[in-house]
Each structure stands twice: as structure tokens, then as C-alpha cells.
């Protein structure tokens, strides 16, 4: 877990991990091994500059809560699926795909779930208004200069300092 690119903070009573999309899957595997066995929720959202997946986990034994999120760009919103770790996330990932447009690589059955199969848009993206029409003056915000995650070396320095 130490070699992964992520940043751990504590908000309220939860541990929040901001993780690099390439290390997302590895972090989830590490958390699963740590005892987070109950999938509370999975949210897909549009941050204005990209798409974000937020996973909320809970450890039945420890009672600990963890939130993991990762950002992916609009043009390639692919995130590895966690369905094999927590089968309960199957429909949540389908919902995130359906409404937000995040593609989960390795999902067994990635179909639309709430909308009909012939929908072409993902209505929860900020570029659409509540009626599902494109907002004429919407522009994606620039990708943030400083990524929310930290390189492993920086984290260790920061942790020791």
C-alpha cells in the first residue's frame, strides 16, 4: 500500500483517500484486505473538470469507515471495476455508468440500469441541463494543477515531518 499514489485525510469520522486512477484498484484491494468488507455506496459525479468515482466502505468487524475517490478525464472515463471485490457494487457501478458515464473496466454486465437502452447521453453530467439538453455556454473547467493524490515519496516525507 505504501507504493501507491494516494493522499489520506480524515474528514469527520471517515478516512478519505484521494487516489490516482491507475492505483484505484490496488488501493481497493488493499482496503478489502484490511477488513472493509461492506460496500456502503458508490457514487459517480461530475466535478466540472472530470468525472469522479467515490466509494464508501465500511468494516463490519472494526466499525471503521473509508471513502475512496478518484478523478478521470471526460474523454477517457475508464475506471477498473470493483464488482469482484464487493459484488454489491454491481448495480451501483451500472448506475454510475448510466447516469454519469463512467465506464468500469471488467464489469460483468455494464448496461444502463435506470434509463432505457436507447439513451445516448449521461444526464448527470454538468454539460446537460435538467431537461437533458446541452448547455450552450458550458465549458469544462481546467484540470487542477495540483493533483489530489500524493506521490508515495512525498507522502512518506510529509508523514514523518
Amino acid at each position: 500500500m505504501t507504493e501507491l499514489r494516494f493522499k489520506k485525510t480524515t474528514e469527520f469520522d471517515e478516512e478519505v483517500y484521494a487516489v490516482h486512477p491507475e492505483d484505484y484498484r490496488a488501493l481497493l484491494e488493499a482496503l478489502k484486505a484490511e477488513g472493509f468488507d461492506y460496500p456502503r455506496s458508490l457514487t459517480g459525479m461530475d466535478t466540472g473538470y472530470g468525472l469522479r468515482v467515490v466509494v464508501h466502505l465500511y468494516g463490519m468487524e472494526s466499525g471503521k469507515k473509508a471513502t475512496v475517490y478518484t478523478d478521470v478525464p471526460y474523454d477517457d472515463p475508464v475506471v477498473p471495476s470493483a464488482t469482484d471485490l464487493w459484488p454489491g457494487l454491481e448495480w451501483f457501478e451500472r448506475e454510475a455508468y448510466d447516469l454519469v458515464g463512467i465506464r468500469f473496466a471488467g464489469h460483468p454486465d455494464l448496461r444502463r440500469i435506470l434509463l432505457e437502452e436507447d439513451w445516448t447521453i449521461h444526464p448527470l453530467q454538468k454539460r446537460y441541463d435538467t431537461g437533458g439538453y446541452l448547455l450552450p455556454d458550458w465549458q469544462p473547467a481546467p484540470w487542477p494543477e495540483t493533483p489530489p493524490w500524493e506521490e508515495p515519496e512525498a507522502r512518506e516525507e510529509g508523514g514523518e515531518a
Binding site: L99, R112, I113, E116, Y128, T130
Partner: peptide, 10 residues
């Protein structure tokens, strides 16, 4: 599912 979908979240 989805026959009662209103997209509350949007």
C-alpha cells in the same frame, strides 16, 4: 428496474 425513474439527483 428504472420504470419509476425521475432522476431526483439531477
Amino acid at each position: 428496474i428504472g420504470f419509476l425513474h425521475r432522476n431526483h439527483e439531477k
